[in-house]
Every structure is written in C-alpha cells, then in structure tokens.
Design a protein around this nucleic acid. Sequence first.
DNA 1: AGCCTTTGACCAGCG
DNA 2: TCGCTGGTCAAAGGC
Length: 325
Amino acid sequence: MAVEDDVSLIRTTTLVAPTRPTITVPHRPPAIETAAYFFGGGDGLSLSPGPLSFVSSLFVDNFPDVLTPDNQRTTSFTQLLNGTMSVSPGGGGRSTAGMFAGGGPMFTIPSGFSPSSLLTSPMFFPPQSSAHTGFIQPRQQSQPQPQRPDTFPHHMPPSTSVAVHGRQSLDVSQVDQRARNHYNNPGNNNNNRSYNVVNVDKPADDGYNWRKYGQKPIKGCEYPRSYYKCTHVNCPVKKKVERSSDGQITQIIYKGQHDHERPQNRRGGGGRDSTEVGGAGQMMESSDDSGYRKDHDDDDDDDEDDEDLPASKIRYSRSASDYHT
DNA sequence: AGCCTTTGACCAGCG
DNA sequence: TCGCTGGTCAAAGGC
C-alpha cells in the first residue's frame, strides 16, 4: 500500500521472552545503547539511583523539556508524574495505561503502562533485597536469548523506547547524546550486554484504538505475526506484533505517527480509563507509540497476550526523511 | 448496530 | 521467471 510513503516512523518493540514481564533494552547504537546504559545495561547490571529518581533525572537533568512527538515542549518527567499524570495511589489498576504512550521521540510508555504501576512496580521500587523480581537485569541473565540483530538495526532511529512490561516503554531517544558519550567511553562495558530486562507486572494500553487487520504465519515461528491499524480516521499508524515460539510477544513494530490526539473516549467505553489516558495523551500524543492493547478491559484476556509482554525491546525506525534529528 | 477478530486470498518485493 | 515471504484486503462471523 501507499502507506509506506506516509509512514515515516517505525517503532519496534522487541520482547525478549523471559518468563516474567520485563523491559529489555537491546544493545544498539547510541539510542538503544543509551537506554541500556541508563537502565543498568551499560555496565552490566547496575541501576544505582532509585528507579524513579533515576528516570526523573533523565528527564529533568538531561531533558528539562520533554519533546512530544510533535516536537512540542511539554513538561519534565517529574511534572508528568506529579501533574499531567493522574497517579492514583493504590488505585492503579490499568487505568493509566498508555499514559506515557504516545511516545514520540522523547519518552514513550506504550500502552499498559500506568503511572501507578510505574510507581509501584518493582521496576522502579524494587524490593530492597530482592532479586526476586529483578527488574533490571542483563539480558543474559534473563535468558540465553540470542541477539536479534534484526530487532535493533544499527541504523536505529534517534528515538527508541524501552518497553516496560511489554506495554510500557520509555522513549529515550534524546538520551542518546549523553549515552553516546558514555557509550564511547571505554570504561563502559556495554559490549554485548545488549539487553536490560526490567520486570513490570502491569500491562497497559497506549490509549489508542487498534484493529487487527491481518495475521501471517512467520517462517520459523510457531506463532503468527499480527498486524494492527490505528482505528482513527486517516491515521496511518500500524503496528506488527510478533511472538516467540512460546507465545510471548517478542517484538512490536510501530509504523507511522498518530496524526490525532489520543482518543478521549475509547471505543467500547467500558472499563477503559480514558480520562487518564487522555491526560497523558497530551504529551505523548502523536507518537503512535505504543499501542498495544486494544481497548476493552474486559477483553484483556484475549488480546492481553499481546500486552503481556514478558520482556521487550522496542525499536523505532523512521525513514530518513523523518529523522530530523 | 457497530466494531473487532479471523482467515484465506491477493499483491509486491526479492533472491 | 519462479518461488518465497511479507503485508494488506475483505468477507464472514462473533461479541
């Protein structure tokens, strides 16, 4: 289809399939490398700063202004957490799904990522002594998964995101520069530690509505690849979801950018916390981001698999024309 | 009724 | 040119 011409952005979320939901930051050139670094993959496994402060620092210290996909400046990560995001303590649930979704070159937390879950997630507040959930761990630790070069091409676009629990992703593209510097530093052993795995237990939705329009068996894969389109009129965004032989989502690829706001009222209305999504929508808007989940909460189970990303890698790729970096 | 998933077929790109 | 594979379309059926 001619869509290709219109679609300049391709974001891929690759999930490494550990048994638990995790965030995987692939070893990749700058952008990803950066993510890996920040998430502890850079030097192996350390994530010294507290999760929240850590992330916050990324945005505050490094990116006072968060750019939305539309290049509109928004607020700092902290602000997002405190203001834009309606974090409901305890309430949580999946409501905030997709709050960060929207993505954009800067920060993306694909669907299913709720602030509350974020705050409560072991990923950010890991049990002091627990290796139990091990939210951030070198990919090798999670599983002897072979590197997937295809997943993180060397020409990664400037923007990348880290999928948190499959549905969540942090778009750290702009962290690149700093990471790059760090990466180039011989002292940082990024070497083959390509992925960092962060476990998050709550899936989320990116706030957009998706419709599955196709499915194809993939050679060598037990599970087929699914194709989804954003249901918004004229929205060219599409995504592909691939699964590993064990049925877990291994990769999600987004194509294009949403040319509309995150829907305030999600299809089916029920259950979807559209309000929360909407709020977050402002900043992540257009970034097609995440998008996982479709919509009905009640249906979580069916499509849920898609959302139940055990671990993930997110790939963003844009056509050269879109890389106004 | 509307929207979604499923599924087989079609088409294009590539080796 | 042929076969393979990926991506999309569209009808049918379900919720």
